[in-house]
Design a protein around this nucleic acid. Structure first.
Lengths: 230, 230
DNA sequence: TTGTCTATTGTTAGACG
DNA sequence: TCGTCTAACAATAGACA
């Protein structure tokens, strides 16, 4: 008798590296391969003592991430060394210069959106942070000593930079628009369209609307003077 | 008999998932596995039509990256919606590089200190930011043309605020430290160690993705870290 | 969505050029 | 640093739980 001829499984099948058609199949494969990828990354970390960060947007656009030691700090370092991208809206706009007004406006929108999202995110984070700082002993609030000052200086410098970037950008925009629009106001102009929708994945080019506003002439910036720190 | 003619190769050997000791070996393994990881990521992209970004810092601290469609845009999107990121981390990191060049452990401490300081600052800033955000009713979602300026202004205001806080605190510290010693450099002691692979994931429903293309890899070479270690 | 099982395919450690 | 080769290992497609 031995009708066992039937194999319980055909084992792994070869599949072409092309988009999987079957939805259910795709989901399963995505899940399995994602964990496989993360595992590989984990092994790489351990074996070679290196740092790895992975970000994956699922078919449903949900973010999954892997990071050793942690995603944020790695991205931070990566971005900090990569002149092509800066979280604080700095460099990308520099390249645009004044080639196309639209492109410029669009780029700006992207950046503003990014920033506003960050601001929003940080606002939200503030709450949980507040909770955290209460729950645990705030080591960063320990007795002030010299070091605190040092760090503060760094932070302040960073803020200066950020602010400077914003100003530069505003001025750039202003100069640009003054070529097409003559304002009766000596203030910088700013052109912008719908800012959101930074999240869509399809590489479709956004339509760029435009409009203008006047920035208070007092916008000359000049951060209030530095305190005795510098 | 059976002199067992030497095999041309013993084939793949099993190795423990622990840091490889031999430097040359580690280098080879790193290279191979890194490309293997990128290949896996590439396949995942193609098979499932998803987006993936990977950042790896080699043992020599060189950054390698893979991204589909491209690293920057993915990081951008990820950071924009991730509450755990700091807006000005990048900037301050750069400064630290110049300021201190010591042990990596110290570097880590500094980094943590810096981050926590920012966190603290942002926590305080939370209130005013919150006010602003609500006052303008989701200004970043408003399609009105003149919002661009507002965004800049709000951002600027937020930064002014933060800066003010920093200044205040700095002054306070300055005053205090004047009374004490100035030479003692006691950093907030925090030794960060093994924070092994951590997975973060969100539940996901699903939906059909769109087309897919493979972008083998994008290597960003260069820049031998300016952090301690050397 | 994740885990299990099996048969296969894919990856890679070690040695060498 | 890379490519090649070989023989192990490891990952995983498909079906089911």
């Amino acid at each position: 008798m031995m009708k066992k001829t039937k194999k319980s499984s055909q084992g792994r099948q070869k599949i072409p590296i092309a988009k999987i058609a079957k939805r259910t199949n795709l989901q399963v494969t995505f899940s399995k391969r994602r964990s496989g990828l993360f595992k590989k990354a984990s092994e790489l970390c351990t074996l070679c003592g290196v740092e790895v960060a992975i970000i994956v947007f699922s078919p449903a656009k949900k973010p999954y991430s892997f990071g050793h030691p942690e995603v944020d700090s790695l991205l931070d370092r990566f971005l900090a060394r990569n002149p092509n991208f800066n979280i604080s809206l700095a460099d990308s706009s520099l390249q645009l210069g004044k080639a196309h007004k639209n492109a410029s406006a669009h780029e700006l929108n992207m950046q503003l959106t990014r920033i506003s999202n960050q601001v929003e995110a940080e606002r939200k984070r503030g709450e949980s942070l507040d909770k955290m700082s209460k729950a645990s002993e705030c080591w960063w609030e320990n007795p002030v000593d010299e070091l605190g000052l040092d760090e503060l200086q760094i932070l302040e410098a960073a803020m200066e930079d950020l602010k400077k970037n914003v100003n530069d950008q505003a001025n750039r925009i202003w100069m640009e628009s003054s070529n097409t629009t003559t304002a009766n106001n000596s203030a910088p102009f700013f052109v912008k369209n719908n800012a959101h929708h930074l999240f869509e994945s399809s590489p479709s080019s956004d339509q760029v609307g435009s409009g203008s506003i006047i920035i208070p002439s007092a916008y000359d910036i000049g951060f209030a003077g530095n305190i005795g720190l510098f």
